[in-house]
Write a protein that binds this DNA or RNA. Sequence first.
DNA 1: TCGTCCATGTAACGCGTTACATGATTTG
DNA 2: CAAATCATGTAACGCGTTACATGGACGA
Lengths: 186, 186
Amino acid sequence: MAQANTTLLGRALLGLLHQKPAAGYDLRKLFAETPMGGFSDSPGSIYPALRRLEEKRLLRGHLQPSSGLRRRRLLSLTPAGERELRSWLDAPLETVDIVARMKEVMLRFAFLDSVLGAEATLRFLHTLHALLAAYHPELKHYLRRHGALMPLSARLALESGIAGYAAQLAWAAHALHLYTRKVAST
Amino acid sequence: MAQANTTLLGRALLGLLHQKPAAGYDLRKLFAETPMGGFSDSPGSIYPALRRLEEKRLLRGHLQPSSGLRRRRLLSLTPAGERELRSWLDAPLETVDIVARMKEVMLRFAFLDSVLGAEATLRFLHTLHALLAAYHPELKHYLRRHGALMPLSARLALESGIAGYAAQLAWAAHALHLYTRKVAST
DNA sequence: TCGTCCATGTAACGCGTTACATGATTTG
DNA sequence: CAAATCATGTAACGCGTTACATGGACGA
């Protein structure tokens, strides 16, 4: 039945609009100019996504009166939109997020602090670190078992993934350290 | 006009079937059991993709006669399929591949050696290393310019990406070293 | 014979992409 | 005034996902 769940692009838009109301055009610019997520900056993806969010009453648009006849619709979250955003960010991290949805994980993290605060971010980092610390050796184990049978380039491709997770793990430890201090100093 | 380009899933299937003819079911199993690419292992994605490749005459299927009434169609590349695979693998790497399509880059690399050989793999690695070496400091520069204005968690999310690229860069140097030796020893 | 695995498929659905289209406003 | 930029949209298209469906083979 798949009750029309919000897509990753939709959640990214919610997160951005939570920080600051903006027009569709601003969001396009953001996707085009910043190294964010890898979302398309084409109008054919963003405007329909925004319209869907509006139809679900997660966003509300106000025509900006100041700028003459050049219509510019500033979008902002409704209370329901904020609830949706919060519940996405607040959902517990699971192994499958680490294995297959790292991009979403980092997107969530990028919004976490400003929406749910430092304590929630700290909890998130704890879980993330633990999951990475568990998954990284699993991949290495897979490599030890199957690596010998694989062509050199395939084995190296796997090693590249492992190196990536190692980097994420080290980063998580670093971030955990920073946030522990930040929370302690309040 | 977008003349029906082969999709990433399609190319992954071509690469796998180049190594060894297989049935759709085998490919599903592979996606389900190995940490590959993150493709869905559902029949609704794989069988249609295989059918499309067959319609484009890139694949050919043979009913396996050995196994009674249990039909099992072994798929293998046609010459056109092999050409398609080769031209994908042989295409020059560009910056946009690094920025937005790292997943595809690693998939290509995984197939490279067995399809195009060690010399081509070595060239690929040279380019990859150069592109990463150029992009990584660019991201760091972006962080230096905009980092101070960003919320801590957003900045850290960016740092995570940077750490990932640093890991890829180190990995590329490692792989380059291995392949240089491999090519030299022939 | 009952459940589990093998093996292949289809149908409905929503989404992202590319390409196209429109008009207002600023800049040179 | 021409060109670039601002700003918003629509249409066609293919693809991936989820869910559903079918039937043979095999072990307990």
